[in-house]
Amino acid sequence: MNKQRTSTGQAFWATLQRDLLIAYKRKNDMANPFMFFLIVASLFPIGISPDPERLAEIAAGVLWISALLASLLAMDNLYRADYEDGSLEQLLLSPHPLYFLVLAKNIAHWLVSGLPVVLVSPLIAYMLNLPSESYMILFVTLLLGTPVFSLLGSIGVALTVGLGSRGLILAVITLPMSVPVLIAGTLAIEQTSNGASLSGFLAILGAMLLASISVAPLASGAALRISVN
């Protein structure tokens, strides 16, 4: 009984679909980072000042930091269930390159945890009184930047998936690595409103995204092998 092998593309799609299906069945996991983003972003006006002018100044940073924290919070369930139920071993033993399977999981994860945050960001931006000409820049930069958070966070979470208590150590590892994206994202909004070149910032964020798509899944895969070992 010789059966047709799946191509790497088919394995990639199967993994992507599976993870999306799991997310769909666990709607809470999908909603939590999103809710977290909304709540954290709304803590700033309460904690700092409801003064519209001051809010406008910090809005870009608040949105980016909230998105980063929301992505960090969501990271934890990227590999945990798979590690605990043994699916991760199946993933590692697939004849297909781990790079693409990990990439599929990362993409699925961003689609359910990162994309909703990006989509709702203009609304929060309005509430934080961000100048309206920056909405589009905010949206596009978050669209380019949040996948990088997911891809980098994936390395940290893959390294710590075997640990009992991993919440804080994940943050300690991942947050410093995310700083360049945070800088590029907030500067893009701030500086372009001052007349700097938008395309320059978009190029930088795009470069970060492409570089992390190319390299991060390799590191995540290696980290998963270490954790299962």
């Binding site: 700097a196 070149s197 320059g200 190029a203 930088i204 470069a207 970060m208 492409l210 190319s214």
Partner: peptide, 16 residues
């Protein structure tokens, strides 16, 4: 491609 993008970004005025 990402190196190309960085080179492009360097040619733009981004640091004010």
């Amino acid at each position: 491609v990402s190196v190309g993008l960085i080179l492009y970004a360097m040619s733009q005025n981004i640091d004010l």
